[in-house]
Design a protein around this nucleic acid. Structure first.
Length: 271
DNA sequence: TTCCAGGACCGGG
DNA sequence: CCCGGTCATGGA
């Protein structure tokens, strides 16, 4: 049980949640903008506001934010109303149980759809430190300033107004043209992110792959991390290896319906 | 120097 | 349908 503290009109409000480690959740490869300033301080941006989280212990976290914002935004962002403990306790396959135990507390974040789409286009054939760097430059150059050194993720409209050479500064390589195509199709409505919210994972995939540079894997990451479709199962080079080694006949039956959650624990257990 | 990274596109068989 | 080459960039 994790204890979460936050501000409440000058005093401190306390909540308790099972299976919730914001540090692990923010730095497990599903989001790229949470910064670990040191081992006890993490800073991120959620909904155009800076969120500082201090780790007091392994199961105690102080959110430097008011209760109202926590309830109205962060409960949703961290998907705190989903019973992860219940889901994870149904996993009965040995390797998966081991990874869940080791990384217990990871939640699939409900990130902004556009940010997730754009971020995972950038992620293709790339490594996590470099993905973070490209996204940081994208925000610094084209986002809105929130505080010193902290910028919002640029809107699709903003990106759509750019030319491919404008993006040279972020050093995303061949992905720049994909980012622009995504921004244009999203702003024009050719790919309607709002409609995807009500679609099945399969239907959503068929929409997203209309974008150049979006194949099955990027689509699945977008659906999982940007639409909270927890049955989406992204297969990258790491998961591919794990599947070949541990699950040649497919994922264990116990993960049915929450394949994406299982995937994140397996991904953290890579190497 | 070569290899590789939360892949996708393109051409050819 | 599947295969291999290619695409930028930078750390190991």
């Amino acid at each position: 049980m994790s204890k979460i503290y936050m501000q409440n009109d000058g005093s401190i409000e306390q909540r308790e949640y099972k299976c919730f480690d914001p540090f692990l959740s923010g730095d497990c490869g599903q989001a790229f903008r949470w910064k670990e300033i040191n081992e006890n301080l993490m800073i991120g941006i959620v909904g155009n506001r800076l969120v500082r989280i201090e780790k007091k212990n392994d199961d105690e976290f102080y959110f430097d934010i008011d209760k109202k914002y926590f309830d109205e935004v962060l409960v949703n962002y961290f998907d705190l109303e989903r019973d992860y403990d219940k889901i994870l306790s149904t996993y009965d396959e040995e390797n998966l149980v081991q990874k869940v135990k080791k990384y217990y507390g990871i939640r699939i974040l409900r990130q902004d759809s556009w940010e997730a789409l754009c971020s995972f286009i950038i992620s293709q054939n790339n490594n996590i430190p470099r993905i973070k760097g490209i996204i940081e430059r994208l925000c610094e150059n084209f986002g809105e300033k929130i505080e010193d050194n902290y910028y919002s993720f640029p809107s699709a409209e903003k990106i759509a107004s750019l030319e491919v050479e404008d993006l040279a500064i972020i050093r995303s390589g061949f992905r720049a043209k994909y980012i622009l195509d995504a921004a244009k199709k999203v702003t024009s409505g050719e790919v309607d992110l709002e409609k995807i919210k009500n679609m099945s994972t399969e239907e959503g995939e068929n929409e997203l792959i209309k974008i150049k540079g979006v194949g099955k894997k990027v689509a699945m990451c977008t659906l999982l991390f940007g639409f909270n479709k927890v049955d989406a199962f992204p297969v990258d080079v790491w998961i591919k290896r794990i599947m070949e080694e541990k699950y040649p006949n497919g994922l264990p039956e116990c993960t049915k319906g929450t394949e994406g959650i299982a995937q994140q624990y397996l991904f953290m257990g890579r190497e």
